[in-house]
Write a protein that binds this DNA or RNA. Structure first.
Lengths: 338, 338
DNA sequence: CTGTTAGCGCGTTCAG
DNA sequence: CTGAACGCGCTAACAG
């Protein structure tokens, strides 16, 4: 049976309040008594009961704001799932969530959402940051004021925050390279179709891919990297053009909109082996349908969950999270889910 | 702010106690009042606060027994990690864990451990069941007495239980076949070295492997399946013999002791591509060292965690888990962890 | 500096 | 059949 404050109080011959002050290092307490109590607590292996303090915390009614940089699409659905899973867990502790959606990477919208969240009484912010000096400045300012900010799914270079939750994009890049390498037995030609580098993670992933191909024998080559612009019609044309320009390519590394990819495949009428990024109901279907061959997931759901969880822990028990929380990616073949 | 019993009581003009009885369907309550309160609770979106009831439950001091079929080895270390992670979470709720270790699949030991656990006041049992009629009989009996039993990592055919937590062994078998298929580009010869079928999951995995190779073109063939006996010296000789008997084999599917495998590799002095089962610190090292090529994890840690969690939920909030909880497996290459 | 007390939401028990 | 009250462990506010 775990030790309670009461147990320690009895053992030390003091009151429960004194024990609490000693262990929480509050002032107005005799240093000697405090030391004795701390000693005793260690001996008796005391650990505060989190659910009891949770009950108390409930009356504090913390609010966490979650701010996105765009409005929903299939990508964010998965993040939201994780966030709602976390919400379910923390609402018993009296912590509530408020979601704010930006639009198309618009910096001024994101800035005003931050202000709005704070005006509406947020005690912490989970943010998918847009890579802009204005946002960076605002976050620095908040951090200086000790206002907790957690980056979700991306981060800002040299901008301090409570924690940044994302996946190791560089690694996922290398993983894609590795998969092509293994599936091709080290022999063939590859093209990479990637999103524009507006978001930092995309850049890192590209680096990972490039580095992997640099380090292997030249029997397998990365012929070209194409940056997409997230404008479907435009991207479809670009991809078609590039695939026609490199007719010997058999392997594609693709990160972007699935529908765009499928359209292209229909039009070029050639068979590729494709490494695709991010699991979603749609990409799952494409995998089962053999339209794509492997998916590298970036565990969006887990990222969403952890982002909320980290601020929750911080608010309710002052647990300081690691500056960076890397969520594992996974490799998924058809046979893993059919 | 979530609704509480008090809120409903005020809204209904009754006392907290009455509301509680109505919602928990206890007797000694006016059916009409009860119905009205239930209605009101739905409208006000009432959900009981789990941490508050947890605090109350604490005084009940539930005990969960976890019974293993063998004594520790590197395989179980990972399960134990998951179990201890769960223990940490549930101890605040006044639920404690007691571990019991059997020996070498010995049925009579497992039977006596079950008796011992119950004698020592266990309120539920998590069991790695040995595939034996005696165990089956005992579990049936317990189930009839409404004593909660959860199977961990395996299960017994046609034996009812609260829940069985394991991975889809058949699928992991197919996944190994698929990996060889993709890595070999559908061309080559394979040998499978598997543990004896004393445990049901092993059998299913074997089936999965066999089925996969049945369904593909005969350019890739499963030359032989060897059943190991978990006796290192003996197994090493067996493996050496078989590898020499099939000199054209280039691909190995291996489930068993890593040291045995590494010894064999040193002795045969030939290069294989190996699909290995189960992630552990040791197998991780072997992967990084390129002694093995891919690991299929069966998420032992997650299984251990979920097994404890499921009984915890059941004991503290009568949540009936699904009869079967399949934990996802994962595919891990060197580049995923280096 | 220290002790006491109220109360977080729920479950139970006892008195009406 | 229903209301009132206590206690789970912890925190915070207040009294000494």
């Amino acid at each position: 049976m775990p030790t309670t404050l009461k147990d320690i109080a009895m053992a030390a011959g003091v009151s429960i309040g004194t024990v609490e002050r000693a262990l929480k290092n509050r002032d107005r307490i005799n240093p000697q008594v405090a030391e004795h109590i701390r000693q005793l607590a260690k001996e008796m292996d005391y650990h505060p009961n989190k659910i009891a303090s949770g009950l108390v915390n409930r009356s504090r009614k913390y609010k966490i704001a979650v701010i996105f940089h765009v409005s929903g699409n299939e990508f964010w659905d998965d993040v939201l799932k994780g966030i709602h899973r976390a919400e379910k867990k923390i609402k018993d502790y009296g912590v509530s969530l408020q979601l704010y959606f930006g639009k198309d990477f618009d910096v001024s919208i994101q800035l005003s959402l931050i202000d709005q969240a704070i005006a509406e009484g947020a005690n912490a912010i989970v943010l998918v940051p847009i890579n802009s000096p204005l946002i960076a400045k605002r976050i620095r300012q908040l951090h200086k004021e000790n206002f907790p900010v957690v980056f979700l799914n991306s981060y800002l270079n040299r901008v301090p925050c409570l924690s940044a939750i994302h996946c190791d994009s560089y690694r996922t890049g290398r993983m894609a390279g590795m998969l092509v390498d293994r599936l091709s037995q080290g022999c063939g030609k590859v093209i990479a179709l990637l999103p524009s580098s507006k978001v930092l993670g995309n850049n890192l992933r590209k680096e990972g891919i490039i580095e992997y191909f640099k380090a292997i024998p030249p029997t397998l080559t990365l012929e070209k990297i194409v940056e997409l612009e997230n404008i479907p019609d435009h991207d479809i044309l670009t991809i078609q053009k590039e695939l026609n320009a490199y007719p010997q390519v058999q392997y594609i590394i693709y990160c972007g909109d699935l529908d765009v990819f499928l359209s292209c495949m229909q039009r070029v009428n050639r068979k590729y082996t494709t490494i695709f990024y991010d699991l979603s109901p749609q990409s799952k279907k494409a995998l089962l349908n053999r339209d794509i061959d492997v998916i590298i997931t970036q565990s969006q759901q887990e990222q969403g969950y952890q982002a909320v969880n980290v601020v929750f822990q911080y608010l309710t028990s002052k647990t300081v999270p690691p500056k960076e929380l890397l969520i594992d990616s996974q490799i998924i073949f058809k046979e893993c889910i059919d």
